[in-house]
Simulated assay, not measured.
Amino acid sequence: MFDDYSLPEGGVVADVGGADGAMICQFLAGEPDRRGIVFDRPEVVPAARKVLAEHGLADRVDVAGGDFFESVPEADVYVLSYILHDWDDGSCLRILRTVKAAAARGARIVLVESVIPPGDGPHPAKFVDLTMLAMLTGRERTAEEYEALLDAAGFTLDRIVATPTPFSFIEATLR
């Protein structure tokens, strides 16, 4: 999934909803000048310390517990991997606005999400969307829906980088 993809520039990368830190380990591998933060619920983040140590990143990646509806750490780049699809638009806006409140103008956000392609053809995101509709309040979104959501929160969509997997990297900049 990370083949040929690099995060936007920025010295501090916060993985919001980062669970055990596996995602930030992949993003920061080979980038020794960057620091990181794994941010998730207080009961979740202790597992990240072990994963970070196993990957030799414990000295440059901090671990912080909290609630992304309330606050997130200050960073230059924010990664939210498979987070927004869990929530309705109103909740997504709350999360994005929390990031906006912590970030400086020009900060970048990278959403790692499935993007529903146009047309009626089959796509894994469409099947996940049905599951989300039946079981949770979240949903999968089209590129246009992500752009509108980001815009409403104060971000400008920069690009969407498709991968060979069902996931894409959706990059935006805080206005």
Rank of each mutant, 00 (worst) to 15 (best):
R60G: 13
R105K: 11
E31D: 13
T98R: 06
I37P: 03
W87V: 01
F27G: 12
Y78K: 00
D89G: 01
V13K: 00
A29Q: 10
P118K: 14
L150R: 03
I170S: 03
R34Q: 06
C92H: 02
A64P: 09
L111I: 01
R94P: 05
L96P: 01
L150M: 03
F127P: 03
L28S: 05
Y146I: 06
V63Y: 09
A64W: 13
S168K: 08
E144Y: 02
V63D: 05
E113D: 04
A19Y: 13
T165G: 09
R141Y: 05
D62N: 13
F27A: 15
P124E: 13
I160N: 06
P164M: 03
Y146N: 11
M23N: 12
A101R: 13
E113N: 00
E54W: 02
E31S: 15
M1S: 15
V77N: 05
G138D: 00
P46D: 09
F69I: 06
K50N: 09
S91H: 12
L84F: 04
L96A: 05
H55W: 05
Y82S: 09
A53Y: 10
D67L: 00
M135T: 14
V45Y: 14
G119V: 09
G11L: 12
G90C: 08
L80M: 13
E70V: 15
R175A: 15
A172M: 07
I24G: 03
V112E: 07
E113L: 07
R105D: 12
D76Q: 07
G11A: 14
P32E: 10
G106D: 11
G21K: 02
G11D: 13
L84T: 02
P118R: 12
G121S: 14
A125W: 02
R49M: 10
A64H: 12
R175D: 13
L96W: 03
V77I: 02
G36N: 10
I116H: 08
C25T: 07
M135Q: 09
V13G: 06
G30I: 02
C92D: 05
V51N: 00
G17T: 08
A153H: 08
D151T: 14
D67H: 03
D88G: 07
R175G: 15
P164A: 05
